[in-house]
């Protein structure tokens, strides 16, 4: 992730709080996938997966904690995705100039604490590369709007995504 983009995210997190910022980041990830050419289908729901992208069912983790925790609910979602024939995926954001998103296969992961590094073998390189390549541009495009009027940006992001567009 570009240091200037990272700076924007860190500031946004500080001003908006971890939880709300997580929702925005989830949407930014969806738009990033859209920009990278992936079909982002599902609506965001409180229950169930965070994102449904083609055959991938993506659980988004934007926490800065290391190790991070896979909760019971996440583990359950992972199991259900496997049952449905989907590929359960975990997208982990790391707030570092040298790292961005880590996208890993989540199949078989159970409740517990994990370090990002120990999931290295599970990486999905093409998906991870696509996300990291386009994420900076998406953040740079949306951040002025997000800083100026977060609520309007929030609605607009959902609207654009439904229309299959990534930019405002």
């Amino acid at each position: 992730m570009k240091p200037s983009v990272l700076d924007e995210i860190v500031r946004f997190r500080q001003t908006r709080g971890e939880g709300p910022a997580g929702k925005f980041l989830q949407r930014l990830l969806a738009l990033t996938l859209l920009k990278a050419g992936y079909p982002v289908a599902e609506e965001y729901t409180v229950e169930g997966p965070d994102l449904l992208v083609g055959q991938f069912q993506i659980e988004v983790k934007t926490t800065t904690e290391e190790p991070f925790t896979i909760q019971d609910k996440d583990a359950q979602d992972i199991q259900e995705a496997t049952k449905k024939g989907k590929i359960p995926v975990l997208a982990l954001l790391e707030c570092s100039s040298f790292r961005g998103w880590t996208v890993v296969h989540a199949q078989g992961l159970t409740r517990g604490e994990y370090r990002r590094g120990e999931l290295a073998l599970r990486r999905i390189p093409e998906l991870e590369k696509a996300v990291n390549e386009h994420f900076d541009v998406v953040v740079e495009t949306w951040m002025p709007l997000l800083n100026a009027n977060p609520n309007a940006a929030f609605d607009q992001m959902d609207q654009r995504r439904r229309m299959g567009q990534w930019a405002p």
Binding site: F98, R115, G117, E118, R122
Partner: peptide, 23 residues
């Protein structure tokens, strides 16, 4: 800066270590 070769090498090293840890 993060794309400089020396830092890329450091990241490569980290990636290798993580890969083995993952394994």
């Amino acid at each position: 800066i993060p794309n400089l070769p020396e830092y890329r090498a450091l990241l490569g090293l980290q990636a290798h270590a993580e890969l083995y840890i993952g394994l």
